[in-house]
Simulated assay, not measured.
Amino acid sequence: MRRGEAVEVFNVSKMFGTYQALDQVSFTIKENEFFTLLGPSGCGKTTLLRMIAGFERPSEGSISLFGAEIASLPPHKRHVNTVFQSYALFPHMSLEQNIAFGLENLGWAKAKRQARVAEMLELVHMSDFAKRRPDQLSGGQRQRIALARALAPEPQVLLLDEPLSALDLKLRQAMRDELRALQRKTGITFVFVTHDQDEALDMSDRICVLGQGQIQQIGTPSDIYEEPQNRFVADFIGATNFLEAEVVSLNGDQAQIRTALGLEFTAAQKGVQGPGAATMSLRPEKIGLEEQASGNVFTGTIRSRNYMGGFTHYAVETAGITLQVSRRNALSHAESYDIGREVKLGFRDESVRVLGQ
């Protein structure tokens, strides 16, 4: 393993009976990185996290932590800790006792243990609640204590298994900021599992998109959203319009395409093998309406409208195709377009991605 790599997963597969949960998965996680495993239910992300933690063993392949093979080690001999969705706090203990419990088992001296507990409570802004029990806290406060307890033994890597999913929307959004700030402050490598695309895009340095037990793409949030490598990634991350297209010619990473909208232009391509059928991906917010329409311009008819505060989402029919179009409400009481109205639409070549079949 090269310097600066915290975790290396190499050719890992996992079978449960005849079911293959993971198939030849390989990637590295950098030191001090916030790395997210993202995918739908059943894609293998939690199984992968549990193998790094030691709760599951790979059927084949290897897992290393800072250069040392750990696939055969039991959980308590790995310098990792896990924060679970359920928090798993001891209900009969105070918050400071919850944090101290693991340190006591590790043989930390009393004075060192007390200092570390105080430091952790201050880190998560819970010093005033030290004597309380978990049932006297809100969901967000319990989450902070679960994080403090997991960070207290100074793990090399912190594993987080959908830790925000039990919180309501407002609290979940606030905890995203706290979790990211906590990772930056401690400098510990975080490996975060979620099915929530917004969480992944908001917090991650890099995202690993998993689907059907395989890696679909690894990259920065911007890479994943703006440069999807296949239809699975484009479909899973955010909303998009998929349109049938014909690749007329290829020139490196550019494709000359003809679309079902009757337009022909050049766009970036991913995984297209040659001239022939392909799929065009176009994000709803990349399509301009009326005065914002530019580039490849055409007309359509508004079929539905949904006001969502920051955006208004339209379904626009054109050439027998329904496109989803998102318009930012940049001004208060900005003009909205009535159902049945004919409008001008447009998008630029660089907004399109052409994906192989």
Rank of each mutant, 00 (worst) to 15 (best):
58 P>C: 00
223 D>G: 09
126 M>R: 09
333 H>V: 04
24 Q>H: 13
274 G>T: 14
322 T>C: 11
14 K>N: 00
52 I>T: 08
305 R>W: 02
164 L>K: 02
54 G>A: 09
232 F>N: 06
175 M>N: 05
223 D>M: 08
353 R>P: 00
339 I>C: 10
338 D>C: 02
292 Q>M: 15
17 G>Q: 01
83 V>M: 08
221 P>N: 05
10 F>M: 04
24 Q>V: 04
80 V>P: 03
87 Y>N: 07
171 L>T: 00
299 T>L: 15
354 V>N: 02
324 Q>Y: 11
261 L>V: 14
228 P>M: 04
250 L>T: 14
312 T>L: 06
131 K>S: 15
229 Q>S: 14
235 D>H: 10
257 I>Y: 12
350 E>P: 00
264 E>W: 09
339 I>L: 07
113 R>G: 11
5 E>G: 00
61 G>D: 02
28 T>L: 01
250 L>Q: 14
262 G>K: 14
266 T>K: 12
256 Q>E: 15
115 A>E: 15
252 G>H: 14
243 L>T: 11
241 N>A: 11
51 M>E: 03
2 R>H: 12
35 F>A: 06
246 E>D: 15
212 Q>H: 09
18 T>E: 14
63 I>A: 00
50 R>T: 08
350 E>I: 06
291 E>L: 10
201 L>C: 06
215 I>H: 04
261 L>F: 14
15 M>W: 05
313 H>S: 11
43 C>Q: 01
239 A>W: 08
338 D>R: 13
107 G>W: 06
55 F>E: 00
155 P>V: 09
311 F>Y: 13
74 P>T: 14
357 Q>W: 00
179 L>I: 12
223 D>C: 05
70 I>G: 09
27 F>Y: 06
191 V>H: 04
144 R>C: 05
58 P>F: 01
348 R>W: 01
19 Y>M: 06
221 P>D: 06
274 G>I: 12
8 E>P: 06
75 P>M: 14
23 D>K: 11
217 Q>H: 03
174 A>H: 12
209 V>P: 05
132 R>G: 12
138 S>C: 02
138 S>R: 07
28 T>A: 04
